[in-house]
C-alpha cells in the first residue's frame, strides 16, 4: 500500500516537472542569454550587459514599447470607465437586458481576425465615405483596444452588482445627489474590486494583442507585438532578449506583490 503511494507521488511530481520544464525552459534560456552577447541564442559569447545597454539605444524598439504602454494604459482606463457605467446600466435595464448582454459578448466570442477586419473596414468607411478626420494610427488603436476590452470589464464588474444593496441608488438620490453623482460617489466605491480586476484584464489583453493591432496600425506605429513579429521575419535585434527578461521580471514582481497583499488581507480577515 505504501509502495503504491510512493509510486503515485513520484509519477505526480514527474508530470508536474515535465510540464513546468516545457513552460519555463524557453523563458529561462532567454533570461540567461540576455547576459551573453551572442548574436543568436545558443551561439558563442561572453557575459556582458551589452544587450541591456543596446536595448535603450534601439530607438524603434523603445518607441514600440512606449506605444504599447500608452495604448494599454489609456485604452484600459477608458474601458474600465465605459465598462463600469455600462455594467450598472445593463444591470438596471428593464427591457432588452438579454440583448444588451448578448451584444456586449460578441467581441469576446468572435474570432479576433473578424473583429480586426471590422475595425479595418470601419476606419476606412469613417474617413473615406463619411469624410471624418479619423485615420489609422495610435489614436485609432486606442479606440480599437478600448472597444475590444470593454466586455471583459463588464464581465468582471457585473458579479459585484448582484451583491449590491438594491436600494443604494435610491438612497443616494433621496439624499439629494443627481444620477451622475450617485453613480460616481455611491455606486462606484462598491464596485472598486471588480473595476480593478477589469482594468487588469483589459491592460494585459491590450499589451498582448496582436491580430487587431497588426491590421489597424498605420503611420508606422508599432507595438512590441508587431515590432518583434515584423523583425522576426528579417533580422532580430538580440537586445529583444534583454526586453523579454525585463518584462518577465516585472510580471513576476507584480504577481509576487499581489500575492503578498492578498495574503495580508486574508490574515486580517481571519483576525
Amino acid at each position: 500500500m505504501n509502495a503504491k503511494k510512493i509510486i503515485k507521488l513520484t509519477v505526480s511530481w514527474l508530470i508536474l516537472a515535465l510540464a513546468l520544464a516545457f513552460m519555463y525552459l524557453p523563458l529561462i534560456l532567454i533570461v540567461v542569454y540576455s547576459f551573453i552577447d551572442a548574436r543568436l541564442v545558443g551561439g558563442k559569447g561572453n557575459f556582458s550587459f551589452e544587450l541591456y545597454a543596446n536595448l535603450f539605444k534601439n530607438q524603434s524598439l523603445m518607441t514600440a514599447a512606449g506605444n504599447t504602454i500608452v495604448i494599454g494604459l489609456v485604452s484600459s482606463l477608458l474601458a474600465t470607465l465605459i465598462g463600469t457605467v455600462s455594467a450598472v446600466g445593463i444591470y438596471y435595464m428593464k427591457r432588452g437586458k438579454k440583448a444588451a448582454n448578448f451584444v456586449s459578448q460578441i467581441t469576446v466570442v468572435n474570432a479576433e481576425i473578424v473583429t480586426a477586419v471590422g475595425f479595418f473596414l470601419l476606419v476606412l468607411f469613417l474617413s473615406n465615405t463619411l469624410r471624418l478626420p479619423v485615420q489609422k494610427g495610435l489614436g485609432w488603436l486606442i479606440v480599437c483596444h478600448t472597444m475590444l476590452t470593454v466586455p471583459y470589464v463588464i464581465l468582471s464588474v457585473s458579479p459585484r452588482l448582484n451583491q449590491l444593496n438594491p436600494n443604494l441608488f435610491e438612497a443616494g438620490q433621496d439624499l439629494g445627489a443627481g444620477p451622475m453623482r450617485t453613480l460616481i460617489t455611491v455606486i462606484f466605491p462598491q464596485l472598486v474590486k471588480g473595476m480593478i480586476s477589469g482594468f487588469a484584464i483589459a491592460f494585459t489583453l491590450s499589451l498582448d494583442d496582436f491580430v487587431v493591432t497588426k491590421m489597424n496600425t498605420g503611420n508606422g506605429v508599432a507595438t512590441i507585438s508587431t515590432y518583434v513579429y515584423d523583425s522576426l521575419k528579417r533580422t532580430l535585434d538580440p537586445s529583444v532578449r534583454a526586453l523579454s527578461t525585463i518584462i518577465f521580471v516585472v510580471v513576476l514582481a507584480v504577481l509576487v506583490v499581489m500575492n503578498l497583499v492578498g495574503k495580508k488581507k486574508a490574515k486580517k480577515i481571519k483576525k
Partner: peptide, 26 residues
C-alpha cells in the same frame, strides 16, 4: 422615475458603431 438603464445607453451606441456596424461592413 429616473431610469438607471440609461447608463447602458452610451455603450449601446458605441456597440452599434464599433461592433455591429463593422460586421455589417464585412
Amino acid at each position: 422615475a429616473f431610469d438607471k438603464g440609461i447608463f447602458a445607453f452610451p455603450y449601446m451606441i458605441l456597440s452599434a458603431i464599433f461592433i455591429i456596424f463593422p460586421l455589417v461592413l464585412v
